[in-house]
Amino acid sequence: MNPSHPELEAFLTGAERRALRMAQIVTQDRDEALDIVQDAMVQLARKYAQHPPQEWPPLFYRIVENKIRDWRRRQMVRNRIFFWRAPNVAVEDEEVSENQPDQQATGADLLQRDQAMHQLEAALRKLPNRQREVFDLRIWQGLSVEETALAMGCSEGSVKTHLFRALATLRADLKGVWP
């Protein structure tokens, strides 16, 4: 047994940013998203560090999606209890990215792209949990249908159905903004 786990470290390093972004789109709060990702990484390491590395992606994203779903449920309960408060809509920080993309893109292009991204995020938030999960895993993360089914704990047929519905809803919501 190797106590330093270099393979696991490499996997987590490669997966953490995407997981953070997935969580941040739903929570709209970077600290909440960080908590979700940290909990998911600890859970993966504690329970599955000894599993073969090829099993880690579906397991990790399954944990992440479960934690996002739990967060959503807690928020719903909180919003019901504290109904007089405004819903938790955090203002997204204008992040200073480490590697600024497309330096040559014009301001108008960037603004348009930024608006399109915000609309995509809003549309993703509106999706039912299962449809958003299948979109995250199959389209964004690029897992196979089989891996997505494993990560979601459902059949491959369900994955295809959820994905079909998710894409139809997103395209309808983003008509005119996205192709």
Binding site: E95, P101, M117, W140
Partner: peptide, 17 residues
């Protein structure tokens, strides 16, 4: 086509401070 474009944009947005 939509899925490809959306995935590309989302991956492009995975930058952090």
């Amino acid at each position: 086509a939509f899925a490809r474009k959306a995935a590309q944009a989302l991956r492009h947005s995975e930058t952090i401070d």
